[in-house]
């Protein structure tokens, strides 16, 4: 089931690259006044590459350019339109976030309870519930197809559901040295956020 796929994935896949599409499938209802909720934001897509532990590039290319990158120690967010790089120590930026599942060190069961939830549309899903109650996530779903990472569903505490679907995933690709080294684009403001 999903849990076996995840364990195999975490054990065998030390690095991977591929493309993703991100869709918000459920927007939270606005609070107090019950005003009709937020309109779900549109679809975003891009590509990713990661190498455990703590190195990843998560690049949104459509409909705008937003780059999230970690070199194992530092975490950068580059926004092309705002011409700005926000820099932070990686520290626990990953924490119990879905990024930790893919990119972090692989003691997942330390921070998540796992549960198989079966196959849907050919994808074998498992549910991960963060053990600590103080995270943005209520639950994370991960789906595998023939043992390959296929999708993730991020449920946050406000009822947002973000669906990530992965394609063209390559396991353990050869990555040139310096793949994760971040150099701020010329002219961009670098800010410690």
């Amino acid at each position: 089931g999903g849990i076996d796929d995840l364990k195999a994935f975490v054990a065998q896949v030390h690095s991977a690259k591929g493309d993703f599409v991100q869709r918000q499938v459920n927007a939270p209802k606005a609070p107090a006044s019950g005003v009709q909720g937020f309109r779900p934001s549109g679809t975003q897509s891009g590509n990713f590459v990661f190498a455990r532990p703590g190195k990843f590039i998560w690049a949104y290319t459509k409909p705008y350019d937003q780059l999230l990158q970690a070199d194992g120690e530092n975490f950068y967010v580059y926004d092309k339109d705002l011409n700005q790089v926000t820099h932070r120590k990686l520290g626990n930026v990953l924490g119990a976030s879905p990024a930790a599942i893919l990119f972090g060190s692989n003691d997942i069961e330390k921070s998540f309870d796992l549960r198989d939830v079966g196959v849907k549309d050919g994808i074998d899903w498992l549910e991960m519930t963060p053990k600590s109650k103080d995270t943005q996530f209520q639950q994370v779903g991960i789906g595998f197809k023939d043992g390959m990472l296929a999708a993730m569903e991020l449920h946050d505490v406000f009822g947002n559901v973000t669906l990530l679907t992965f394609t063209n995933v390559v396991k353990n690709p050869s990555l040139p040295a310096g793949t994760f080294k971040f150099t701020p684009p010329k002219g961009a403001d670098v800010i410690d956020g």
Partner: peptide, 15 residues
């Protein structure tokens, strides 16, 4: 106004 992380999680809702 909803402030969100790039992955779509709500960080704050202001009404």
């Amino acid at each position: 106004i909803e402030l969100k992380s790039p992955l779509g999680q709500t960080l704050a809702i202001i009404e």
